[in-house]
């Protein structure tokens, strides 16, 4: 496609699209950026959904869970899903405001009550097709019904949730839920996309122009940086989910070497699952005869293929009912727990 020839039409369309949603804007971006167009199908693009269209909630008309004196249910009523918790005497029932996560591993629900946001104490897990405690929730039964409902989020906490799962949620440093577009759309990562749409030569910074450390920080805005986990935790097995933190801990991580960065293996515009072998050439860029790695990049004495299968093992986080790829690249000795 010749962008030059289409430019006047594209300009009109893109400029008009500024007034519409970010997802509609994605379609417009796709007119020129065909290679990035599959982004709208990625898990990131669908990281948040309204209950009315949410497939897990629609296909599970009644989900229940019990902990100590508290009984939980999520019940489908028309286009709404009602999240309830009762201690047998009193009940709190609220419509789910937003479903966080596509459900590849699980899905967590945000509730709005008396002007405050709450993270539901129970979440849905794909592995069990059922509810269980949300990852990070205190395992003991809460002292009262209000706390049993879920975790009250600070305004900053709520802002962080929406800012990572949607586009346009934070305007001038303030959460504006009414104007957000669910999911991570073009404009969420590519700051200045509106200017680019209005004036095509104003090109936003490209991810692949960033250094390894800048990429880890950039993706780590949501996937958690080394600094975030080091200062705020969690300092336990559940931090396996936070890939930039784990990657930076790897012995082979070199902030000055662009071959080891998030985008070396991941295309944020296309998260199609790939076999382990497809990543081998990234490892072997250093760990191969003649590989120009940092001093001491050794050759593997065990195998020559499927490097990630051994050196980036899948680690079970029991509370998340899921196995996550551990980005702390290492020699994984059988019977040794993952480092935390």
């Amino acid at each position: 496609m010749n962008c030059g020839r289409l430019r006047p039409l594209t300009l009109i369309a893109l400029t008009a699209s500024l007034a519409v949603s970010a997802s509609a804007q994605n379609d417009d971006c796709g007119r020129c950026h065909a290679r990035q167009a599959p982004q709208s199908k990625t898990g990131m693009a669908r990281a948040l959904s309204a209950p009315a269209k949410e497939e897990i909630l629609r296909s599970h008309p009644l989900l229940t869970f019990r902990q100590g004196p508290y009984s939980y249910s999520i019940e489908r009523r028309g286009d709404e899903s009602i999240y309830s918790v009762t201690d047998g005497k009193d009940t709190i029932s609220l419509p789910i405001s937003w479903a966080f996560g596509l459900g590849a591993a699980g899905q967590t629900y945000l509730l709005h009550r008396n002007g405050l946001w709450y993270e539901g104490r129970v979440s849905y897990y794909k592995d069990t097709q059922a509810l269980d405690l949300t990852v990070g929730a205190q395992p003991n039964a809460p002292p009262n019904l209000d706390e049993a409902l879920g975790r009250e989020l600070s305004p900053q906490g709520a802002e962080e949730c929406f800012n990572c799962h949607s586009t346009g949620a934070v305007v001038n440093g303030k959460l504006t839920v009414d104007h957000l577009t669910p999911g991570v759309q073009c404009a969420r990562c590519h700051e200045g996309v509106e200017r680019h749409a209005a004036k095509l030569e104003d090109i936003p910074r490209k991810l692949h122009a960033m250094t390894s450390e800048e990429t880890a920080d950039y993706c780590g805005q949501c996937h958690r940086t080394w600094a975030t986990i080091a200062t705020q935790g969690p300092n336990n097995i559940t931090n396996v989910r936070f890939q930039p933190y784990r990657l930076v801990n790897s012995k082979c991580y070199d902030a000055a070497d662009d071959r080891i960065r998030c985008t070396s293996c991941h295309d944020p515009h296309n998260d199609e699952a790939k076999p382990f072998a497809s990543y081998d050439n990234r490892c072997q860029a250093c760990h191969a005869p003649g590989g120009k790695g940092k001093a001491g990049a050794k050759l593997c004495s065990v195998g020559k293929a499927n490097c990630a299968g051994c050196h980036m093992p899948k680690v079970l986080i029991p509370t998340a009912h899921n196995r996550f790829t551990d980005h702390w690249i290492r020699i994984d000795k059988p019977g040794t727990p993952p480092p935390v």
Binding site: S212, E213, E214, D217, T225, W226, A227, A230, A255, A256
Partner: peptide, 21 residues
């Protein structure tokens, strides 16, 4: 030190970054 590590890393000073971390 936490920000210092990150900034050293962005400047390509990997050893300094590792030391601060």
């Amino acid at each position: 030190r936490i920000t210092l590590a990150s900034v050293y890393a962005k400047l390509g000073r990997s050893a300094d970054a590792a030391r601060e971390r």
